[in-house]
Amino acid sequence: MRGQVPGCTVHTPTTLIGALEILFAEKGAWRPLAGGTDLMVLFAAGVLPFSRFLNLWGLDELRGIETTSDSVSLGALTTYAEIRTHPLIAAELPNLVQSAWVTGAMAIQNRGTLAGNIANGSPAADTPPSLLAYGAEVQLQSLAGSRWVPYENFHTGYKQTVMLPEELITRIRVWRPKGDNFHFFRKVGTRKAQAISKVCLAAYARAEEGRVAEFRLGMGSVAPVPMRALTTEMLVQGQAIEELDGQFIAGAKLALMEDIRPIDDIRSTASYRRKVSANVLGQLLEEMVERFKRA
């Protein structure tokens, strides 16, 4: 334990407004703290460059999963465990359930939050690819009001986001899929549980009249930020399902290798990440074709 406990201040607001007031009054001075599963690791290692923490854990306003006929809205403090066991999410947004399932293990899933996973800004987080695939939006709130930001625009660089120092994430909204759709999630981690992703792919596709009407591909651990593979998406989107043959898939794999910007680190290599991303895309497209042809 190398973190400096005596030098730390933790403030626990009792309302969301109370929290926002503090963030507004001393911009950038307070680090929001939710389940602690990321921050406490850095704190214990003595490498967390903050000493003032705003404890959000007790703010029930930031909890709860709400559904409408069009969307599912998850409170910022929704835990992985809550996502894992939510029947509607399991039925309609299975990628979210899978990404929650593969984040840490039970003890982490009981504490880690969806907003924390986003705000922490790690490119290796496992819910972001699913959120990208589902076209999620993030609600940011400050004393001045709230705004919805498409999640794909949220991260601006390694551990950088569009959030202002006085803002908090309050909710994450995902649109409920319609029509004939296909979901794919695969994490290639360092091991089967308690693992950090080396490559993570999540995709959502919708077919209409024999064509891929919608296709979004979210990726983790292959760039400084969680990212959508836009060139690859464009290639696939609008294609006739009949034409998604081996040759097409080979082309898509090449496109994906250009889309991503992986690096070498202590967990894997850039060349591995590039090749495996492409191979898993191949698996994804094959399964997608099979699924849509079956319908």
């Binding site: 933790v10 602690g36 599963t37 214990a44 465990a81 982490i108 009981n110």
Partner: peptide, 19 residues
Amino acid sequence: CSVILNGKLVNSCLVPAVQ
């Protein structure tokens, strides 16, 4: 360091005591 906090399994090394 697993303990059960309010009925849920947690890693007590990652829980700030204040929570």
